[in-house]
Amino acid sequence: MTTSTVPTPAAGAADTSRTGLVMSGVSLELGDGDRIVRALDSVDLVVRPGELVAVVGPSGAGKSSLLAVAGALTSPTSGTATVHGHDLASLSARRRARFRLEEIGFVFQSGNLVPALTVADQLRLVHHLRGRRDAFDVTRALEQVGMAHKADRRPHELSGGERQRVGIARALATHPSLLLVDEPTSALDRARSQDVVALLRERTERASVATVMVTHDHDVLHHCHRVLTMEDGRLLAA
């Protein structure tokens, strides 16, 4: 099986050739010793390309676990998770890393950029990791998140919101099918939070990527197409 990417259509409506994220009957049991925790309990979820879905819920509900399974970082105990038509469980650890590089973008809390690299190099790094030697339009990718003017700065010279913008640009630099966003506004003030989530919505639609965002921040939910609630490992419509 190959994991080659289909080039992203420039912009516009949902791309029907890509299925985004499909999870069906996914359960994840985590255990230390004899205590077993059911972090995910029969989760069914479909996120189409171009759709921004928010997941909220109390601490320990299983939100990070959901991202871990969808992001091919953990294999579910039962059920299937497919991204862009590929069953994640069927991939070896090595192929899963490659698949993450090609098909899945991650935006972490507070950006999690590489301290030594300039903004432009953060994007070049993922391009480099994919083994691509072709030209990569860093400026354009940065323009799309409004960060082209700070291409030569390093992370410690950026504000929290700017770091998140660069994080979003980095996650989308490889034109993934699925974008996973973990509490992107936890380190930001109100105004910045609105900006960042509005940007996520805009990029989700333009890049027609399926986006799942975990958040505790109820003020940003109006940017999302759908809001789901997690409770005790179960996913409920809000």
Binding site: A97, F99, R100, F108, L129
Partner: peptide, 8 residues
């Protein structure tokens, strides 16, 4: 983070 992103 780099490993999550998919760096071999």
């Amino acid at each position: 983070v780099l490993r999550a992103v998919g760096a071999p």
